[in-house]
Design a protein around this nucleic acid. Structure first.
Lengths: 186, 186
DNA sequence: GTCTATACGGCGATAGAC
DNA sequence: GTCTATCGCCGTATAGAC
């Protein structure tokens, strides 16, 4: 019988949700503590530098739980190229389509890129890896330069789609972007 | 000799700049007051409901000073269709290419769409008008449905491009999006 | 219209008991 | 590891003199 205890990862996962919904600056330890059912001071035991350190770990968690898997999928030689794009689209739909927060990495980029240098490396890694995953796939039918441009355009289209989806509460913007991303291969 | 006095529009324009750089929640009246060289309490004379009302007027100002002009341009019968797209691209470059804040409407959408219902109508109007402007132009060579989809894709591509430009400090993302927007016509 | 002064709450952060 | 208590600061907002 496992002892039920607070783990760092639990705090990160719950904080991820709250930061996604409310944004970084607008979220207080009181909000996070309420969601985690702990006193807010306990966060300083796990994250001694406070909110900035917590958010850094939240962003790193997102990188490792999403975009790293995307890259593995893109590099997997046992999957047909056409199927890879379909799988990535379904992965995106699972991540974003039912998530009112949208993409926390996009949110945090626009909110903090000019203000919090500590988040930049992780945010850059996220988008770099994401673009790389698409580039790998597009390279099977395009020259490297063209594949990179298509990958960048796809990521931009998707992030813009998540923005419009959040604003208009209409899933078509993300769905259409994913459809367009698949259209480049056949 | 005009008397130098504080006008509501001066406050709005200066606040627009600060909100763009720092975000809505992270900007205090102290920040705004310092930038405007007035005591922060004076904002309550011009905007009795405080920060929320000020931001609402900032967003309305952006709609009227940018996207409304874009629509006029798109509808102007005296300009060649191909030139319209080039003019819009140059308009976008002027607005965003040298602006570290990026697009305040995109920033504010991601930061507040779930939290501040008062901003939603103006944010929606901005993106609706922007998409409409492109739709009008694309309709000269495409069916209405296809023109709308191209317009939505263009706006998504540009907003995603502004995001990546802000993150990587590289103008290519926006430039490429604008180039792609022009590629659909000839 | 513009200012000074201030109330009041909430924030991040720390100390220290258990 | 987890808790209670608390500190000092900064946020929005208001009162009222000029």
């Amino acid at each position: 019988m496992e002892k039920i205890k607070t783990t760092k990862e639990d705090l990160i996962i719950k904080s991820l949700e709250i930061f996604g919904l409310q944004g970084y600056h607008n979220t207080s330890f009181k909000d996070l503590a309420a969601a985690c059912n702990i006193p807010s001071s306990l966060f300083y035991y796990y994250f001694k530098d406070g909110k900035e350190e917590l958010m850094t770990e939240v962003l790193k968690y997102v990188v490792h739980s999403s975009v790293k898997k995307l890259k593995e999928l893109a590099q997997n030689p046992e999957i047909l190229v056409k199927d890879k794009l379909a799988k990535i689209s379904r992965f995106m739909e699972r991540l974003y389509l039912e998530n009112p927060a949208g993409c926390i990495m996009g949110n945090t980029t626009l909110e903090t890129a000019l203000l919090e240098p500590r988040f930049l490396p992780t945010l850059k890694e996220f988008f770099k890896d994401w673009i790389e995953a698409y580039t790998i796939i597009y390279q099977t039918q395009y020259q490297p330069d063209k594949a990179l441009e298509l990958a960048e355009a796809t990521v931009q289209d998707i992030e813009g789609g998540i923005m419009l989806m959040k604003l208009f509460q209409d899933k078509k913007y993300l769905r259409n972007a994913l459809r367009r991303s698949e259209k480049w291969l056949d």
